[in-house]
Structure formats: structure tokens, C-alpha cells
Amino acid sequence: MKKTTIILAAMLLVASSLFAAGAKEQAGDNSLQKALDKGKLVVGLDDSFPPMGFRNEANEIVGFDVDLAKEVCSRLGIEAVFQPIDWNAKEQELNTGNIDCIWNGFTITEDRLANMTFTSPYVSNAQVVVVKGDSPYTTLASLAGKKLGYQAGSSAAEAVDGSPEFKKSLKQIVEFKENLTGLMDLEIGGIDALVIDLLVANDNINRSGKDFKILSETLSSEDYGIGFRKGEQKLADGVWAELVAMDKDGTLAKIATQWFGADITVVGK
């Protein structure tokens, strides 16, 4: 009985310590107030990632995520500032303070969750394989011995790594700095296939009218979230609260429909 009492007391002591540490960390989190005082939120993005964030013909940064960030910041009473970054160095850009968040079709993964603070998912997506319309490839297995491309440091790379047998079957993997470069290389036959986000693939095919097709097999399903520096929970919560409000008043659905023709968001669903 004594032994049980001692164990229970130890467990309570550990729990109390963890609760106190968590409360202390939350109390020391002034990330939201810091953004409000600064009057702006610096959003890191790949500015060649349509329809989430890209440059239009007037060289303006536009896109679905861009419109969401602008609306959220407007409701918070601050300015959304968009900072193009090297996607392969996105975590470094965030941790050094060059940007305040990563908001650009940013997939939530276990590794990223361990190193930064995320909002809940706001869009569901998948990693798919795009090939030329007249190519003979119809399945992942048919790409054995072929050249595959993806954006360096992207969730596409993680999806391929997460399919070791498929990866092993390939002749070569080519990394690109941007998805658009990969699509251009696919068009001229430099690679046989490109792994890319489903939403991005659909948008590119629809807008460009180029002869690409998407294989029915997907490599992985995933969720998009907004990434902040580790521990900046209050800023993440503040942004998420505005997205929830936008869902309730129909603004989120309106923005999604403008870009995708339908409400593809998962907030509140």
C-alpha cells in the first residue's frame, strides 16, 4: 500500500510539473501581441505555386492562400506582407525571424509538427503523379526504370520517400527548385513524371491547357496547415480563430469558390 501511495504521489508530482511548465510557456507566449504591435504578419511563400500563391501577369503575388492571409490580417487589424522564400530553406527562414509563418499549401507532417506550431488543417490534398497526356504510363508500377521529378524540400519528396518500393523502382530522381520548372521539364521530356500536389496539378492543367494527365493512384493524402515558430501557439490560435469566423460567415467558401469553383476547405467540417 505504501509503495502504491509513493508511486501515485510521484505521478502527481510529475503531472503538476508538466502542467506548470506548460502554463509558464503559454504565459510567456506573446506572439499574437507581438504581431499586433508590429502591425503586420510576414507570410513566407513560394511565389510560383499556383493557385495557392504565385505572380500574375502584372508581377503581383496572388492566390488562394494569399487571399486568405489578407482577409485574416484585415480582421486582425494588421497588414499581410508576402515574402517569397526558397522552399528548401523554409524552416530556416521561419526560425531566423525573416518570416512569421509559412502559409502556402504547407503540408502538415510529423517531422514538421515536431519542429513548429501548426494550425488545424484548412484544406485536404494529395500527392499525385503527372505525366504527358500521350505517355504510356497509367500506374505507379509502369514508371519502373523511368525518371521522376519533384520540388526539393517538398511534401512530394516525403511522399516518394514514404513509398520505398516505388522509389527503388525508379531509374533517377530529379529535384527542382519550383514545381513550374518541373512541369516545363516534363513537357519537353526531360523527365517522365512529376510528383506534385493534386490542387496545384489540377490548376496548372486547367489554366495552361497543356496535354498532361494525372495518374489515378496517389502517393499520399495530406492536409494543409499554417506553420509558425515552435511555441507560438497564441499567434496560431489567433489566425485560426479568424479562419473559423470566416467559415461561419461564408467568406471562406466564397474565396475558395473563386479559386477552385467549389468550397474545398475543411474548416468546421
Score class of each variant (00 low, 15 high):
19 F>A: 15
119 T>P: 03
32 L>H: 10
65 D>G: 06
253 A>L: 12
91 E>G: 02
224 Y>K: 06
132 K>H: 08
198 L>C: 10
95 N>P: 02
41 L>Y: 07
114 A>Y: 03
224 Y>C: 11
268 G>D: 03
6 I>Y: 12
256 A>L: 10
267 V>H: 06
265 T>H: 07
256 A>D: 05
19 F>P: 04
72 V>M: 07
184 M>F: 01
194 L>W: 14
232 E>G: 13
268 G>H: 02
247 D>T: 12
257 T>R: 15
137 Y>Q: 09
97 G>T: 09
175 E>F: 03
41 L>V: 02
201 A>D: 05
53 G>R: 14
127 Q>P: 00
246 M>E: 03
2 K>F: 08
82 F>I: 03
263 D>Q: 07
186 L>I: 07
243 L>C: 05
162 G>K: 13
149 G>V: 08
94 L>Y: 03
78 I>H: 07
124 S>I: 02
18 L>A: 09
132 K>G: 04
37 D>H: 10
186 L>V: 09
23 A>C: 09
55 R>W: 00
215 L>H: 03
62 V>L: 11
255 I>Y: 02
178 E>V: 05
104 N>Q: 12
58 A>N: 10
244 V>A: 14
35 A>N: 13
164 P>K: 15
152 A>M: 06
105 G>N: 04
261 G>Q: 06
225 G>C: 13
1 M>F: 11
78 I>C: 09
116 M>E: 03
111 D>F: 10
223 D>F: 12
136 P>T: 12
184 M>L: 03
75 R>V: 03
204 N>F: 12
101 C>V: 07
193 A>F: 13
243 L>S: 05
253 A>W: 10
18 L>Q: 05
155 S>I: 01
56 N>S: 00
208 S>H: 10
186 L>G: 06
83 Q>N: 13
117 T>E: 05
54 F>G: 03
103 W>V: 02
154 S>L: 02
18 L>T: 04
221 S>C: 09
228 F>R: 14
124 S>N: 08
67 D>N: 08
136 P>D: 13
141 A>I: 05
266 V>P: 00
24 K>C: 08
109 T>R: 12
265 T>G: 00
258 Q>G: 06
154 S>T: 01
167 K>V: 01
19 F>Q: 13
195 V>E: 07
148 L>R: 07
59 N>G: 08
251 T>M: 13
237 D>W: 11
152 A>G: 07
133 G>T: 00
141 A>P: 05
128 V>F: 15
163 S>I: 12
182 G>Y: 02
31 S>Q: 10
211 D>Y: 08
64 F>H: 10
265 T>D: 04
119 T>C: 14
246 M>H: 01
111 D>N: 06
266 V>A: 15
44 G>K: 08
264 I>N: 00
48 S>N: 15
224 Y>A: 14
239 V>H: 10
244 V>S: 06
227 G>E: 08
47 D>C: 01
259 W>T: 02
96 T>C: 13
79 E>C: 02
